[in-house]
Design a protein around this nucleic acid. Structure first.
Lengths: 354, 354
DNA sequence: CTGAAAGCGCTAACAC
DNA sequence: GTGTTAGCGCTTTCAG
C-alpha cells in the first residue's frame, strides 16, 4: 500500500507551494498557466485523492439546512418525515451542520408559498422539501436556482426543475405492486378497485401514477376477466363518503381494494370491520398507527411501506454530503417497495431504519 | 444556538489543561480524582460532544479490520456478503481504515479453523465473521476475547460467546413469514412443507429456527386442517434427490413449499418448471440469480430477502464506529424481513441497499 | 501570481 | 498528575 499522498507531496513534486496546489485543485484561478499544468499533471499521475476529513476540518464553514415539510401534527405520515429530519439533525450536529424545519399547512397552498418565501429570505445553504403542491413547488425551485441554493426533493418528484436529487419511490411500480398484492391467488376475474380519499385535490398528481400502475397490471393479466375501478372520494363529509364506500363494498364481484391515502385506509378499515371481510383483499400504504392496528386484526392484508422517515433522513444526508464533502449524490434514489404482512411487521417496527 | 463547545472550552471551565480533559475523556488514567470529577461534571453539564472529524484527523491511528467469511466463489449468497465487505472498504478507506477479507471453505470446518488461527496471528483491530460452524466459532470467539479483539457476528448468532454485536434476522420469525406467504389465501387445510437441501450438516442449527417458526405458524391457525412436513435432503447425489422431491410434489394435498437453501431452491424450481406449477405456492430465500430468474417466471411466488450484503456492510460499519468513534453499537441488529414479489423486485435490485 | 503561516478540534508525546 | 506543544491534511488570509 503506497503511502497516502498529500497536498504537500504534490506541491514538492510540482515545485510549487501548497497554496498554489490548493488554488488549482479548487479552480480558484490566480495561478500561472505554467504551474497550473504542472500541478494538474502531477495530480493525475499520482491519482491524488483529497482527505475529506481534513478538508472539512480545515474549512471552518458551518452549514445551515432547512427542511420545508407539511406540519407534522396534521398527519402521521408527515410526522414520520419530521422524525427523519430530527434523526438527521442528531446525526450531523457534531459536524457543525444546523438543520431546522419549517412547516406549512398540508391543505393550504398559500401557506406553502408563504413559508417558502420566508425560507428563501433566510438564505440557507441547502433545502429539503416535499413538493406536494406542484405549481407552487415549481416556482419555489426556480427561486432556489436563481439564489443558487441546492435542494433535494422527497416523496414525489417534480420533473420541471431538476433538483440535486430525488428520494422516493417509483409510484407507478408501487401501483402495480398494490394490484399484485390485491390479486394474489385470485384467479378468474373479478372487480378490483383503487381508492383515493382526500380532503383536497392536491394529491392527485402522484396518486394518478399509482393508479396507472394498478390498471396496467390488470390489463396485462392473460385471462381478461378483470374489471378495474378507481374512485376519487374527495370530500370531508364522512356520512356521504361511507355511503359511497358501502355501495362499493356491496358489489359481490369485488375481490380486492387498494387505498392510497391514510385517511381512506382508516375509514375503509372501519367499514370492513363492521361489515365483515369475507374474501376481500385489502391493501393500504404505510406503517401508520391505524394501519398497523388493522393489519394485526387481519382487516388489512398488506401494507406497502413508503418509509417517509428514511426518505427525509437520506435526503438530508445527501445535502450534507454534497455541501460538506463535495460528494456526488445520485440524481434519483428510489427506495424498495416494502411489503408488510402480519408476520414481518415486527421486524420492520423494530428495525431502526423505518 | 449556543456555539459548539470544544475541549478547550471545557478545559477552561474545569480549570485544567486540554491534556487532562483528553485523559478523562478517554479514561487513560493518570489524573487526580479531584480534577477527574470536575471535568466529568462540566462534560455532563455542557453536554459535550467530541468533533469526530477532528478526532480522526488528530489520532494518527489506522485500524485494520478483517472479515472472515466463506469463499465468495463457492456460493452467491456469500458472494453478496463479500460485496458488502468491499463496499465497506470503499466507504471507510478515507478514514484510514484498512479492511481485508480472509476466506474459508464453506464446506470444511478445518479450513475455518486454519483461517481463524492465521487471522488471530495477524492480530487485527477488529473482526467480522459469519459463524456457520458452531463449535469452531465458539472456540474462535474465546480466542478473540483472550486477545482482546472485538468481533461482530453476521448471518447467525452464537449465544455462547457474546460479541460486540450481531447483525442478521430473526430466523424464527422468518420461518413464520415463510409459512404465511406459502399459505396466503389458501383456506381449508392442506399439506405444507419446509425443505432443507444441503451438502453438509453444518447449516442445521439455524435452519431449525426457521423450521420452528414455520411449524408454529400452522399450528396456530384456527382451522386445524393443516399438515406440516419437513424434509432434510442431505446429499449431493442429484438423481436421488430429485426422486425424493418428485415424490413430495406428487402429493396432491401439497399446497405450499418453503425452501430454505439456495441450492434447494434451484433444484425445486427446475422440477416445478418441468412438472407445471398448478396452484402450488413456492417460497424461497434471497435475491440470487437463479431465484430471481424463477421469480420472474412465476415459478417462485415470493422471496424472503436476507440482504447478506447489507449485513456485512453494517457489520463492518459497527466495528469502525466502535473503534474509531467509540460509539455504542447495538448488541443485536435485526434486519426487516423483506418480501420480494415480481412487482417489487426491480425496486430492490436497483436500490443500492441490497 | 505565489509562498508562508495561522488556524480547524483533537491526540499524544514529553517535559516538569 | 498535569500542562505544553507539535502535529493530522487542508483551507484561507495576507504580505510580497
Amino acid at each position: 500500500m503506497t503511502r497516502k499522498i498529500r497536498i504537500k507531496d504534490i506541491a514538492r513534486l510540482a515545485q510549487v507551494s501548497v497554496g498554489t496546489v490548493d488554488r488549482v485543485i479548487h479552480n480558484r484561478g490566480e495561478v500561472a498557466e505554467d504551474s497550473y499544468n504542472r500541478v494538474m499533471e502531477i495530480l493525475r499521475e499520482t491519482g491524488y485523492k483529497p482527505n475529506l476529513i481534513a478538508r472539512t476540518l480545515g474549512s471552518h464553514k458551518s452549514y445551515r439546512i432547512t427542511a420545508l415539510i407539511p406540519n407534522p401534527d396534521q398527519d402521521e405520515y408527515w410526522h414520520q418525515t419530521f422524525d427523519g429530519v430530527v434523526k438527521a439533525r442528531d446525526e450531523w450536529a457534531q459536524y457543525g451542520v444546523v438543520i431546522d424545519t419549517c412547516h406549512f399547512d398540508l391543505y393550504d397552498k398559500k401557506s406553502f408559498e408563504q413559508q417558502a418565501n420566508s425560507l428563501l429570505n433566510s438564505n440557507p445553504d441547502g433545502i429539503l422539501t416535499a413538493p406536494i403542491f406542484h405549481q407552487e413547488a415549481v416556482a419555489f425551485f426556480k427561486a432556489c436556482k436563481s439564489q443558487n441554493i441546492p435542494f433535494v426533493v422527497i416523496n414525489n418528484n417534480v420533473a420541471e426543475e431538476p433538483s440535486l436529487g430525488f428520494i422516493g419511490q417509483d409510484l407507478y411500480q408501487s401501483g402495480r405492486l398494490g394490484a399484485e398484492l390485491s390479486h394474489l391467488n385470485n384467479e378468474g376475474g373479478g372487480v378490483y378497485a383503487i381508492l383515493h380519499v382526500y380532503d383536497d385535490i392536491h394529491h392527485s398528481l402522484h396518486l394518478r401514477e399509482k393508479e396507472k400502475g394498478f390498471r396496467d397490471y390488470f390489463d396485462e393479466q392473460r385471462d381478461a376477466g378483470y374489471t378495474t375501478l378507481s374512485l376519487d372520494l374527495n370530500h370531508s363529509h364522512e356520512p356521504t363518503l361511507e355511503k359511497e364506500l358501502n355501495d362499493l363494498l356491496s358489489n359481490n364481484q369485488l375481490k380486492g381494494v387498494v387505498v392510497t391515502t391514510s385517511r381512506g385506509a382508516h375509514i375503509v378499515s372501519r367499514l370492513i370491520e363492521r361489515r365483515g371481510k369475507n374474501k376481500l383483499r385489502f391493501v393500504a400504504y404505510d406503517l401508520l398507527e391505524q394501519n398497523i392496528h388493522y393489519l394485526k386484526l387481519g382487516i388489512i392484508d398488506f401494507l406497502i411501506n413508503q418509509n417517509s422517515k428514511r426518505q427525509a433522513f437520506v435526503g438530508i444526508g445527501n445535502i450534507v454530503n454534497h455541501l460538506l464533502f463535495q460528494r456526488d449524490i445520485p440524481r434519483e434514489r428510489l427506495f424498495p417497495l416494502e411489503v408488510i404482512t402480519r408476520q414481518n411487521l415486527s421486524s420492520y417496527l423494530q428495525s431502526d431504519h423505518h
